[in-house]
């Protein structure tokens, strides 16, 4: 197998640009997903069945269908209603946000429900409203427990953002496919892209482990 490094070299500026876009859309996706996810998690834990229902449906739809299908529907069906022509980056960010929101909602729910019931009871018995008890007592404790699964979700999201290439969003995978098409080569572009993803996810894993260790040391409170 002859590996032509000059292809990698020629395309490096595009790969780096693609990497920046990949990081950007993933960050946007996780941040919007966090806000939506918290809201959905709280809605999904309402004591009122009717309020729970739409949140529950949302979670099931977005977790139960492939992200690729969601992206295609969003890009070719929904975004064109508001924007023409639809920008693939906008569609990708919307898709990643809505999809991660469903997973993040479940992460938050698990985190909140892992807090001892006595905490809510103590807060309520002191006269706090449900919202106050959530904000002041439950969520601050749940945050620590949801950080590791949220880190995993971010890693998953970073990899799944590669589906944006199908929409021609100029992220890392898109440039890999572009190089493969231009040079009619397989190994150089795809191995390079794979390596860049690997560096990104491994750095994130390392960062997460560091954060977790840090949290453990000041967890004695």
């Amino acid at each position: 197998m002859d590996f032509r490094f000059e292809i990698v070299q020629d395309y490096m500026p595009f790969f780096l640009k693609g990497m920046a876009v990949t990081i950007g859309v993933s960050l946007a996706g996780i941040l919007i997903g966090l806000i939506l996810g918290l809201f959905i998690a709280l809605g999904n834990m309402s004591s009122n069945k009717l309020i729970r229902l739409p949140f529950n449906i949302y979670i099931n739809i977005f977790r139960g269908t492939p992200l690729l299908v969601q992206l295609l529907i969003i890009h070719f069906g929904i975004v064109p209603m508001f924007m023409s022509p639809s920008d693939p980056l906008v569609s990708l960010i919307i898709g990643l946000s809505l999809n991660s929101a469903a997973y993040i909602a479940e992460i938050f729910r698990a985190g909140i429900q892992s807090i001892d019931k006595g905490q809510m009871e103590a807060a309520r018995s002191l006269g706090m409203t449900r919202v106050q008890a959530m904000k002041l007592v439950i969520l601050p404790q749940a945050v620590k427990r949801v950080i590791p699964p949220l880190g995993n979700e971010f890693i998953v999201l970073l990899k799944e953002s590669s589906l944006g290439s199908v929409l021609a969003a100029p992220e890392l995978m898109y440039w890999g496919r572009a190089a493969a098409g231009q040079y009619i080569r397989i190994w150089e572009p795809y191995l390079t892209v794979a390596l860049i993803y690997l560096v990104l996810t491994l750095s994130l894993t390392y960062l997460m482990n560091y954060v977790e260790r840090r949290m453990k040391t000041d967890d004695l409170r």
Binding site: G118, E121, A122, R124, G127, Q141, R221
Partner: peptide, 15 residues
Amino acid sequence: RTDVGMVFQHFNLFP
């Protein structure tokens, strides 16, 4: 509830 204080078996302090 502000008029009725409650003390629990397992304390339920906020950790």
